[in-house]
Amino acid sequence: MVDKQGDGPTRWSDVLPRARPQPFDRPSRPSGRPRVVGLLVHSLAERQGAIVDSVQAVCREVGARLLVRHTSRAEPGRAQVVQFLDAGADTVVVAGGDGTVRLAAGVLAGAGANQCTLGILAAGSGNVLASALGLRRGSVSGRARVAVLGDLADLDVGLASCWDEHGQPVAPQPFCTMVGMGRDALSVQSTHRRTKRVLGPLAYGVAGLGQLPRRGFEMSWRTDDTPWRRGRYWSVLATNTPLLPGVGPLRAGAVLADRARMDDGLLDVVATRPENPGHWMAIAAAGLLNTRTATRGLQRAQGARVTIEPDQPLPVQADGDIICARARQLSAEVGGHVAVHIGDGRLD
């Protein structure tokens, strides 16, 4: 922690000399009062009682009916959201992490962006999307109010299609923040559920440090129909958010895709190919200082579709979930969008 004169304690991220890019191009808009609210609670979320009570209090205030469902290993979220829609829900609040949110967002985007809105109560191990949207601060009751009544913004929902090591297609998977291949995905794959429960977001950082000194993989990638780029990459990510996850004193994360907006229908590529520790230092500086200058060991691009082909089968991660253990190809694009609550939740 650092003390600023007269302001008390703050985070390291508050004094870094960079401007945090806004996640949306278009302004938010007021939301209406919901009639039926579905609350999806991850089975391992902390303070579940407080979460349910807080959402119930907001629903009682506006006269909405609340439906509560919990996830399980057999039903991680999709089926519950379908049940909410069948019951007439016009708002679904997810109390969980990025994996649970992406499953819910995929169902809502498929049902039509105007049918049901999405509220997020960060209660997972990563919560990258909630951090990017500024939804992690405040009390449970305050965040519940935003999740039900906050202003609305259109959030792009990506669709990732993979082909496994035998060339067979894998069922497409939704994502809200990022999808990719390389050492980043291997870090996710090696992070155990128990470790995530104990360490939270730091668990991914610990796993990532183990992958940091290792060599990258020969991969080719491109956006849309542009020429292929080929090289030995540590990681290739297609991201929907300018903010990538961080740990420790830099918990706010690094801005490596500064042009990324979550409502523009495009994906931004962040491809890292460091050859020495100096390249890693340059990449870290670029993320922390939010620089747009060319950076050694870092390639960036933007497009409507991103295709990645490794020379050997590699795992694919989407929002912190492994969606294919051994993939020969990954194709990602924006498949739809959903209206997400991000405002302060004040009633008119």
Rank of each mutant, 00 (worst) to 15 (best):
A203E: 03
G112I: 00
W12L: 15
A50T: 01
P172E: 07
G158S: 08
R29N: 00
V101L: 13
E218R: 15
V101Q: 03
G208Y: 07
L133D: 02
Q48L: 02
A332C: 11
G150F: 12
V92W: 11
S220M: 11
A79V: 13
Q80E: 14
D7T: 12
S31T: 11
Q173H: 15
A304Q: 15
D3T: 08
L186R: 15
S139T: 13
E61Q: 14
A327W: 13
V52R: 14
L209I: 02
V170H: 13
A105H: 09
A304Y: 04
Q80N: 02
A171N: 09
V316R: 08
P201Q: 03
L267Y: 05
Q48R: 15
C59N: 04
T223A: 15
H70G: 05
A327K: 12
S139E: 02
S331C: 15
A325H: 15
C324M: 01
G150C: 10
D53W: 01
D98Q: 03
R11A: 12
S187Y: 03
P169S: 05
G246Y: 07
P9T: 00
G231L: 04
Y204N: 01
V247W: 14
F217H: 15
G287K: 05
G88M: 03
R300W: 06
N290F: 01
W163K: 04
V188R: 08
A327S: 15
A19D: 15
A153L: 02
V82K: 14
P213R: 09
S331M: 12
P227W: 06
W280L: 15
L44N: 12
A160L: 07
R20Y: 08
L40C: 09
D258G: 00
I308A: 08
V306Y: 12
T293D: 14
D258S: 15
C162F: 12
A89R: 08
D156M: 06
D90Y: 13
T272Y: 06
S131Y: 01
L67V: 02
M281V: 13
F24S: 04
V270F: 09
Q173K: 13
P76G: 04
V101A: 06
V94G: 10
V338Q: 08
L186A: 10
V198R: 15
A104W: 09
M1S: 13
G126A: 09
A57H: 08
I51S: 01
A144L: 04
P34V: 00
D348E: 12
G248C: 06
Q329D: 00
S54N: 03
H42L: 00
L16S: 03
Q317H: 15
V2A: 03
V37K: 06
G182L: 05
